[in-house]
Design a protein around this nucleic acid. Structure first.
Lengths: 215, 215
DNA sequence: CATCCAACTTGACCTACGGTCCACTTTATC
DNA sequence: GATAAAGTGGACCGTAGGTCAAGTTGGATG
């Protein structure tokens, strides 16, 4: 796992240039309007270089997203409450939802691109041994987010289907209409409603039909 | 709006053949694996015919979805309670959510295709004057679903952001992980959790932070 | 039933994009 | 400065959505 020859100077420079260029383009154009060739051109490198470094469109987007969400992941696992460990589950959940909305809000274009990119990826190709791709195809960020939300819900309400509820909560942020809302800057509006949903779920009176009723 | 020359017999036959073929393919393959050419071949027509009738991949998918969801729309607007008018908002909402899960569950592939298709559509082209496309690009079905949910939530809880909550509720059903769940047949599991969310929202104790706290 | 025209059909064709390949250049090491 | 591993670029490939001009056909009309 230790990498003796981590990366050549020019390679590092190019990688950053590509990432930067992607950010730039993502900020100015609809994600499905941005071709890999454009990105390469904007970064001042050849298309081959982009694919060499990131493997595929999806790889690029995931890498970019990972970079952006790293701080959040860190804050959650090792940071201070309420985001980090220590606070009660509800508080952590609320804080985490706020944080996610924030991240997503500042990365709408990227999120959309991630969604589109999922379309592609015919063959994962070689890639350095760093890419862990699961069966589904969901990107790593989602995995962490989902795991965290799921755990928090289950901690507070073991009787609920935390796993699914986490997907529901997360899925709602990814939908196009919501993304468009974020685009218009109504971040806090989203955060407020998401909190309302989460609060409602955690406070739910255990009503409804009992699980197991269905196939 | 009255169409004197509605459609020629052969055209109607072909349209149905195309729709049928699409259903068939959608049932057997991943949506992004199905090309328009395949559809045309399966329907026994030329590719040009498909585009002539539906304008684009998106157009085809929307048409198919509209056909499928028509019954639901009808049941909601003119049918008996609890889906139709007459029952209290909560009951109608629950019934509607169940119904939507059902429709979505029986049309996962189509939903996914709709999502992918959104990628395309560079120029809406001519099209018969029947397509109303809004600024965003969301398909008509969503409009109706969203409007209904939104109205029901607002009816019961005018203090909440029904419009956004409806998007959240709907968005959650569209996300890939949830779609995959449906694929595995866990329809009722989804329905149960969705009900829980909706119930939680409607019963919410108006807590949380007052709107306007953020920016 | 013959005529006619607009609607319809078709498949070759165009364009664009994701991804691959490999000959060539650069970096870092000794 | 020689060398080999790492990196680079851009021509190239296959595929798929969408277009179009030329030909075909349904059906209304007299």
């Amino acid at each position: 796992m230790a990498e003796a020859r981590p990366e050549r100077a020019d390679a590092a420079r190019n990688r950053r240039a590509i990432l930067r260029a992607t950010e730039e383009l993502l900020a100015r154009h609809r994600p499905d309007q941005i071709s890999m060739e454009q990105i390469a051109a904007a970064a001042g490198v050849g298309k081959g270089t982009v694919f060499h470094r990131f493997g595929s469109r999806m790889g690029l987007m995931v890498e970019l997203m990972r970079e952006r969400a790293y701080a959040l992941e860190d804050a959650v696992t090792t940071g201070p409450p309420p985001l980090g460990p220590g606070a009660p589950p509800e508080e952590r959940l609320m804080a985490f939802l706020d944080a996610i909305v924030d991240v997503v809000g500042r990365n709408k274009g990227l999120l959309a691109a991630l969604g589109h990119a999922a379309t592609a990826a015919p063959r994962p190709a070689r890639e350095q041994g760093e890419h862990r791709d699961e069966a589904g195809g969901e990107h790593p960020l989602h995995r962490f987010w989902h795991g965290h939300i799921s755990a928090l819900i289950t901690a507070r309400r073991p009787d609920l289907d935390g796993e699914l509820l986490a997907h529901i909560l997360l899925g709602s942020i990814q939908s196009e209409p919501v993304l468009r809302l974020l685009e218009r800057g109504e971040t806090s509006r989203l955060a407020a409603s998401l909190r309302a949903v989460a609060a409602g779920v955690l406070a739910a009176p255990a009503s409804g039909d009992p699980p197991g009723t269905s196939a």
